[in-house]
């Protein structure tokens, strides 16, 4: 284009938005997953994340393909169906300094991956675990997943008679410190929460309702765009203030709840409908149970506790990544072998 020569803006890491780009998406046009990908790119750029410190991990599914579509400058591991949590755990053990984004689907997490999901929620890793939740298996053409609501219908009329698994409730129950439910169509809230999640040091579960336009966007679906547009209950107005924002302290907080994260950034939460306290675990579980009845989908920060020691802290490991240790640290001296041999003689 001729004329405009305005320099593209750079962030605190000295990078431009394009440095956070990925390959072109190969998902269906209009897929909710692509909306999440776009906000992830924005959030990573606005947080000035260093791509070299970030790794992306996923399982298998349309959702699990998306790490290819953002931040190509970061390492990525598209693994096997339902096993991303263990791969992430191993990665964190080898290199405790990495920030991880785990991308999964509702089938990848709540069906085949349920075993690993619950255990990774118990381990406090430095990971944002995103479930791109469409209530079906997109990649295998539209079978129900375990997050499908009771009474919801597949494209050809089959009805789900079983209870849905509520991943947010499980995460709260299992000790995850930061749990949010989001709607991919509410991009403003999604972006703010993603930024906060990326700044948070610990496991974050983001259960993002992300409609599958090809297999689960019809009438009778409770994970469709139209259903979510009329049933989303956006509970909060959420803001994120990066650590480097010098102006924030002077601003008037009003009735906002301000939660400071470990890196100095802040998340601001202004309750819209009622005064919901996201620091209360029982409150969180109550809210979720209540809305299973109502059919409404509350979105926002369901639960946010202060940052607590991480899994790697409890293991008492050295401060540097284990992957950086060399022979001098990894092989004990000959005297050690002599000592052991003597004890066995």
């Amino acid at each position: 284009m001729a004329g405009t020569t305005e320099a593209p803006s750079t962030n605190k890491a000295g990078l431009q938005k394009k440095d956070y780009a990925g390959s072109k998406s190969t998902l269906c046009v209009g897929c909710g997953h692509d909306l999440i990908t776009a906000r992830l790119i924005d959030a990573a750029f606005d947080n000035s994340l260093k791509p070299e410190n970030l790794v992306k991990l996923s399982g298998i599914g349309c959702s699990s393909k998306t790490p290819a579509y953002f931040v190509s400058r970061s390492f990525s591991f598209n693994s096997v169906h339902g096993r991303m949590p263990s791969i992430a755990t191993g990665t964190a053990l080898a290199n405790r300094n990495l920030k991880m984004i785990g991308v999964s689907g509702d089938g990848d997490t709540a069906n085949i991956g349920m075993g690993q999901f619950v255990h990774v929620m118990r381990r406090n890793l430095n990971m944002v675990y995103i479930v791109e939740n469409n209530g079906v298996y997109g990649l295998t053409k539209g079978q129900f997943s375990a997050t499908a609501d009771k009474g919801s219908k597949l494209k050809h009329g089959q009805v789900n008679h079983m209870h849905a698994i509520d991943l947010c409730a499980l995460a709260v129950e299992l000790g995850c410190g930061f749990v949010a439910r989001l709607f991919a169509g509410n991009t403003k809230m999604m972006k703010q929460v993603l930024q906060a999640a990326l700044a948070y040091k610990g496991t974050v579960l983001l259960d993002i309702i992300s409609p599958c336009v090809t297999f689960n966007n019809h009438e009778g679906s409770t994970k469709s765009f139209p259903w979510m547009k009329s049933n989303e209950l956006a509970m909060q107005d959420i803001g994120f203030v990066p650590a480097y924002d010098p102006h924030y302290e002077e601003m008037d907080h009003g009735d906002e709840r301000v939660i400071k994260l470990g890196d100095g950034s802040k998340i601001t939460i202004k309750a819209l409908d009622k005064d919901y306290d996201p620091a209360s675990r029982t409150g969180a579980l109550q809210l979720l149970a209540q809305h299973h009845e109502s059919g409404k989908v509350p979105t926002g920060v369901i639960y946010l506790a202060g940052e607590t020691p991480r899994f790697v802290d409890h293991l008492g490991m050295v401060d540097v990544p284990l992957s950086s240790l060399k022979e001098d640290a990894l092989r004990p001296a000959k005297s050690v072998l002599d000592e052991v041999m003597d004890s066995l003689a």
């Binding site: 080898a94 075993g115 690993q116």
Partner: peptide, 24 residues
Amino acid sequence: TFAVVQAEDEIAAAGMLAGAGWAG
């Protein structure tokens, strides 16, 4: 200078191996 972790099952143990081996 190490991490010994009890996994939830052997699938997870293998997954952790893969993550750790991948990450060096």
